[in-house]
Computed example of a mutant assay.
Amino acid sequence: MLTVEEKRQDAVSLNVNNTGNSYTGDWHFGANYVRRNLTDVSDTLDVALVYRAILPRVGDSLYLMASHSDVDLGSLGTVGGIGIAANGRGWTAGVHY
């Protein structure tokens, strides 16, 4: 007999670190929220806070972002005899100054 166990639909994570300084504050806090199967087609919504460093000497700030996705929605049907599937995997990273 095969038993299927559903994954939880929502996940939340929090993080705390003391990598700040006297200008930004010693403590930094972060949060991440994931909603699986957002619209009932096996899609995922992932929302996260992004790290931002204030650079007072140059009057600007620096943002660091990163994300990873691994999606396999399988076959979505056919159009004009051509099978359509949605899957992919990748990393994205960004820096904004």
Rank of each mutant, 00 (worst) to 15 (best):
M1Q: 13
T3I: 12
V4A: 15
E5T: 13
E6P: 07
K7Y: 08
K7L: 12
V12A: 11
L14F: 14
N15P: 01
V16A: 15
N17I: 09
N18T: 14
N18C: 08
N18P: 00
T19W: 03
G20N: 08
T24K: 09
T24C: 02
T24N: 07
G25M: 05
G25D: 06
D26F: 01
W27G: 03
H28R: 09
G30L: 01
G30C: 02
G30D: 02
G30M: 02
A31L: 10
N32E: 07
N32H: 06
Y33T: 08
Y33H: 12
Y33R: 08
Y33L: 08
Y33D: 07
V34F: 03
V34D: 02
R35L: 04
R35M: 05
R35C: 03
R36M: 09
R36E: 06
N37F: 01
L38S: 09
L38T: 11
T39N: 03
T39A: 09
V41T: 04
V41Y: 02
S42F: 01
D43K: 06
L45I: 11
L45E: 08
D46R: 05
V47E: 00
V47F: 00
A48W: 00
L49C: 06
L49E: 02
Y51A: 10
R52M: 07
R52A: 10
R52N: 13
I54Y: 00
I54R: 12
P56Y: 02
P56I: 12
R57V: 10
L62A: 14
L62K: 13
L62T: 15
Y63M: 11
L64H: 03
M65A: 15
M65Y: 11
A66W: 00
A66D: 11
S67F: 04
S67I: 10
H68C: 06
S69G: 08
S69I: 15
D70L: 02
L73G: 09
L73F: 00
S75G: 07
L76S: 09
L76Y: 03
T78E: 10
T78I: 03
T78S: 13
V79A: 07
G80T: 04
G81L: 05
I82K: 08
G83L: 12
G83D: 08
I84S: 14
A86S: 13
A86W: 04
N87V: 01
R89D: 07
G90T: 11
G90F: 00
G90S: 11
G94A: 11
V95R: 04
Y97D: 13
